[in-house]
């Protein structure tokens, strides 16, 4: 119990720091750090999604960039058609673009859910290293699909000239956009916490520990894992939509396997199966990238060393170091 209240404290500090950073940056008139904080929140959100599958469900998906990128392309394509005033689909019904964030998020959630349902339904028939490979293969398929559609920029990607909007707030204001990302991150964290504590989440963790034991207790592991995989993908997909809007750009790089690896690194660096692990991981990653990256292009060498250190000496990741031994290892 002591450990868990310590973890709550660490969580609160992390959330507080992320909230404080852009406020201080705004006071100091340093807008770059506001968008950096938005970046941390968005990538943490992507990690929170993956953590549900990887951390709690034991599904080592090496294809979450597919969902991240799909979310991004939904934002990009919707903005593209809205900007051009052209239709995405003209037969049998006309579907135009949209520059409304709420519409974009809803569509991004739907698209990633459908993709995850199809990918998960097939991938979850395998496990272990085969699951890793098959999720990677699906992500690569979507990557090459994106490259091969010239209408949406192909290899060059697609620029979002005007950030998608909200009804009441001005999303083009960096601070407002940060609050959006931060709010969605908190929502996803809250949702994850609720899911993990619910019978569904317990069954999901049981499935990770021993599927046969779960089955002999009367619960089929497959639908549980598939549902969790879909929820996980939707969270990561929403993060992708935000990421595209943050950068004003979406390209195939959002779908690449490097990106899948990066999201995985957030989770592992922060602590697998720890609620706030992805936030800690993404924050550390971005800090290393932007500050060490300012001195040398070889910052990834240091990232590699840190990751090695975590894997060898601190298996609970950053959260393990800060908040004590992992509850779920």
């Amino acid at each position: 119990m002591i450990e868990r209240s310590r973890e709550t404290l660490v969580n609160a500090v992390l959330a507080g720091l992320l909230l404080a950073a852009p406020l201080v940056a705004t006071l100091l008139d340093e807008p770059f750090y506001v968008s950096l904080a938005s970046r941390v929140a968005i990538l943490a959100l992507a990690g929170v999604g993956l953590n549900l599958a990887l951390g709690y469900g034991g599904m080592v998906s090496f294809g979450h960039a597919a969902f991240f990128g799909l979310g991004g392309y939904v934002a990009g394509i919707a903005a593209f058609h809205a900007f051009e005033g052209s239709a995405f689909l003209s037969w049998p019904v006309t579907i135009g673009g949209s520059d409304q964030l709420l519409v974009v998020w809803l569509v991004a959630a739907l698209v990633t859910a459908l993709a995850a349902l199809a990918i998960g339904a097939i991938s979850l028939r395998t496990s272990g290293v085969y699951f890793i490979m098959i999720t990677l293969a699906f992500a690569q398929m979507i990557y090459y699909l994106a490259i091969s559609i010239p209408a949406y920029g192909g290899e060059d990607g697609l620029a979002i000239y005007l950030r998608n909007q909200l009804p009441l707030a001005d999303s083009s204001d960096p601070l407002v956009f940060f609050f959006l990302c931060y709010g969605l991150l908190l929502l996803a964290l809250f949702l994850s916490a609720r899911i993990v504590a619910a019978p569904f989440g317990m069954a999901l963790q049981c499935a990770r520990m021993n599927e046969v034991r779960l089955a002999t207790s009367g619960i089929a592991p497959y639908p549980i894992k598939l549902t969790a995989f879909v929820i996980s993908a939707v969270i990561t997909g929403i993060a992708g939509a935000l990421f595209a809007d943050l950068n004003g750009f979406v390209g195939p790089s959002m779908l690449s396997w490097h990106r899948s690896g990066e999201i995985m690194i957030f989770v592992i660096l922060g602590g697998v199966g720890r609620l706030f692990g992805p936030l800690a991981g993404a924050a550390l990653f971005i800090l290393l990238e932007s500050f060490i990256g300012g001195f040398t292009d070889r910052w990834q060498l240091l990232l590699g060393a840190v990751l090695l250190g975590v894997v060898l000496f601190a298996r609970g990741g950053v959260m393990g170091l800060l908040a004590g031994r992992a509850r779920h290892d």
């Binding site: 317990m202 520990m209 021993n210 034991r213 779960l214 089955a215 207790s217 009367g218």
Partner: peptide, 23 residues
């Protein structure tokens, strides 16, 4: 399948004290 049999009402306490260790 195993989960359907369990649903019909067969509860198993497997050999070797099998719980879910990290719950």
């Amino acid at each position: 399948p195993a989960y359907r049999i369990a649903r019909r009402g067969i509860g198993l306490v497997p050999e070797g004290r099998r719980c879910f260790p990290n719950l």
